[in-house]
Design a protein around this nucleic acid. Sequence first.
DNA 1: CTGCAACGTTGCAGTCACTGCAACTTCCCG
DNA 2: CGGGAAGTTGCAGTGACTGCAACGTTGCAG
Lengths: 199, 199
Amino acid sequence: MTDLGLRERKKHETRAAIARAALDLAVAHGPSAVTVDDIAAAAGVSPRTVFNHFGTKDEAILGISPERRAELLDAVRDRPAAEPPLRAIGAVFTEAMTASDDAAAFWLRRAQLVAAHPDLRVAQLASQDQLQQELVTVVAERTGLDPDAHPYPELVVSAALAAVRIALARAAHAGPARLRRAIEDALAVLADGFAPPTT
Amino acid sequence: MTDLGLRERKKHETRAAIARAALDLAVAHGPSAVTVDDIAAAAGVSPRTVFNHFGTKDEAILGISPERRAELLDAVRDRPAAEPPLRAIGAVFTEAMTASDDAAAFWLRRAQLVAAHPDLRVAQLASQDQLQQELVTVVAERTGLDPDAHPYPELVVSAALAAVRIALARAAHAGPARLRRAIEDALAVLADGFAPPTT
DNA sequence: CTGCAACGTTGCAGTCACTGCAACTTCCCG
DNA sequence: CGGGAAGTTGCAGTGACTGCAACGTTGCAG
């Protein structure tokens, strides 16, 4: 895409190599059994370099790349202005996670890893929170609301991402085929004002 | 209350002393400037003992005591069975946080600390998550829904606690007088199905 | 009252995540 | 081609957290 020189490209490659090594090793041996030195060695890089790209070992395992995050943000920005925020965010994530088998696998693999290793739950929330704070500014733009003065932007983003996370956790058990349906079901609960479902 | 012997009482006192020291020191010097040894010394206890009561330094600073958590859980359980979960949780937290000046101060002090030190944001989410998982089982009981099969329980708890957290953050700026109103406003957004507010 | 078992506290040694700093190398740009 | 910017690396250090083996108290049963 936008190739900004050899330097940038190598940096991205390094980051990607670390992230891939971290996730693979965590899946293989469990996150707590993997050291930063292991990750660095598997990525062919110095341990110090891992922390030049990630603030935390867990972030190296679960973190979402800035590119992927920027794509999601732009996609939300590009939704029709008349569309309410919940619907806009829901559409973007439903689309992004079911666009291809690779995309679905990317998200489901992380969800399965977190489900298998509850120690990662906090790291998952941290990762979600990072995306959340960025999305809040987008929703603030779209709605013209000041996030410090009105709870709406942070609240709608927080709930929408929680819905996606919970749907992913369910699909991690039930299989990829259920992913789209799981996300839509969860978002429907939000749109209904949390009316208790009548089974 | 339920005095289960001298041993239990001393254990609770130890835990309380550590928590108080941790919070006080964090407020005074900033969380990152406080070591576990500092906390232990201020609490008159061995550093090792801190980790017998708390899994993490941040948990010692922000953690909610099991008693307080149990009270909240029981309060939700005791709400009328016909009341929908969102309303039940909302009522309990609104009540608990505005019941007394002490209660409001307890929650607002933590919110202010987190606002002043973003490093604590993740720890706050971790603390919330712990309460969340316990509340999910309560909502599961109330609704008769299996949390693994249906997203509703986890979703409604997640959204409700997010509303409370966001309202606390706003009240941390605006002052304790706004607390009740802030919580009610945030919960109203949820009940309205995230209809975009028309200013 | 007395021993015995359960439990909380402590010290110790060790591992490992994470940081600041100072080279060193490589790429970019004038 | 020269100089500055940026990424990588090694090193030394701090501090969170853990397992383990005493140790002293408390609770309980005989």
